[in-house]
Write a protein that binds this DNA or RNA. Structure first.
Lengths: 249, 249
DNA sequence: CGAGGTGTTGAGTCATTTCAAGTAGAGTGG
DNA sequence: CCACTCTACTTGAAATGACTCAACACCTCG
């Protein structure tokens, strides 16, 4: 929505004002950039991973497969996301990280966080808060998978993706959605076949239009009639954040 | 496993050494104590909640219900847990909080965190890390619900509960498990009926013994043969934590 | 033009749910 | 101490939503 050079700064600025110093701290995370092709595995679960990543461009997802191949997609990552916070307390990565499109990632070492932790309690609070927002989205998906029918699950995910993208993109006239139906199914505890049936149905009913890697939700309000959905990216309560004052250098 | 007065300190001490100052900061969170009876709703989703809670005694769970009553249990809370971090960035609570047993909670205001954020980057990192561990447990349950059969889901949850309890209790010869089958089902995306069938089967096969509100898993290794389960509470990688040095008062 | 990835559609199968009835145990009050 | 009540759990039979299997259509890319 804004003209920040960094998607991360753009995303976070939706929720709290960032000081110059905070922006500098964040900029350090994006000093290095690496490119990966589509359908590429960046790392696998169980590997030692010392880096976190800021997503600069492209779509990725984290997933984990059981021995017999059954796969669960855990998170879907968009530009501005920080990938890897959940792996932080572990020696080995929890999940596979795979690209859906060509991608640019900015890797930075775990240690880089300690500067933020030590120098900017306020930025720490913001990162923590956003991490909790993502957890809230996860809770919502848990409920979708655990307690909703196939059609509801799909509607829920589409609304969720749209609401996340709205932080950095215009989605009113459609948006890029480069996830195939197998990935969508694996995110929702469904098969690609069920996803296909639902999406075909939704398109025939006229609630959405699909292109390849592209989706237009005509009216989110109408789609919301098919499922209980809660917006999580609206406002943050920042009242508990520490004040700006802190150690500096 | 240790003789700390506070379950919270006991739990966190499993993962990192706490300085005197850190322990004092944590003690402040437990100054106030309130009691609630079993099967009581502490707060409901959508209410404004300005407090977080440290669990001192008893079992609780967070859940969320759809309009038609379908309910998803999101988290199960034990002594030593901090309840409410996921609600932090929101004005209104995300979930209902209900007790399964008589409970003692220590409420503390959101604002209390800013002292920790400002004064102890290291403790902040620890709390953040533990929050990510809980998120990892959540990911595991997401996979269980999304991609496992009823029997696997139940085995997974039982192993998960046991491994959590091991942080503060002896579980070798059984442990208290005051969750009825409806709650277990709601945590796993199953009905109470399915849970009953699975548990009855497991008991008949001799892998576990049940009492009312009590469970003995004879051999976790044997139970693990029925499901892929990963221990998440083992060690934390604390290498990225900021050093002790920080502002003080 | 062939290959591979992706999506669609139909028919049959199956795990879990739903519905329903019944048992067991804990707590209460007469 | 015995009904009485309530909640939790069990068990069977029938219903069902999603899965599996399989064939086919479409598109992109080399």
């Amino acid at each position: 929505m804004s003209d920040h050079a960094s998607c991360l700064v753009a995303k976070l600025s939706n929720f709290a004002e960032l000081t110059e110093d905070d922006q500098r701290l964040l900029a350090r995370l994006e000093e290095d950039t690496r490119s990966y092709p589509a359908n590429h595995t960046v790392f696998r679960g169980g590997e030692g991973v010392d880096n976190l990543y800021v997503v600069k461009r492209g779509w990725l997802f984290s997933s984990s497969a059981l021995e017999d191949g059954r796969r669960q997609v855990m998170m879907i990552h968009n530009p501005g996301d920080i990938i890897g916070l959940p792996h932080l307390p572990f020696r080995r990565s929890l999940h596979d990280l795979s690209t859906s499109t060509p991608v640019e990632l900015c890797p930075f070492p775990k240690d880089s966080l300690d500067t933020i932790l030590s120098r900017s309690p306020r930025l720490t609070a913001l990162l923590f808060a956003f991490s909790m927002v993502e957890q809230a989205v996860l809770f919502d998906r848990l409920q979708a998978i655990g307690r909703m029918r196939a059609r509801e699950r799909v509607c829920h995910l589409l609304l969720s993706l749209r609401s996340r993208l709205r932080l950095t993109n215009d989605v009113e006239k459609g948006f890029s959605m480069p996830l195939n139906q197998t990935v969508i199914g694996d995110a929702l505890g469904l098969t690609n076949v069920s996803v296909s049936r639902v999406m075909t149905g939704l398109e025939q009913e006229g609630v959405l239009t699909r292109g390849s890697s592209w989706l237009w939700i005509h009216s989110p309000e109408e789609l919301s009639q098919h499922v209980e959905f809660e917006e999580r990216y609206a406002h943050l309560d920042t009242s508990w954040f520490p004040s700006e004052t802190s150690a500096s250098t």
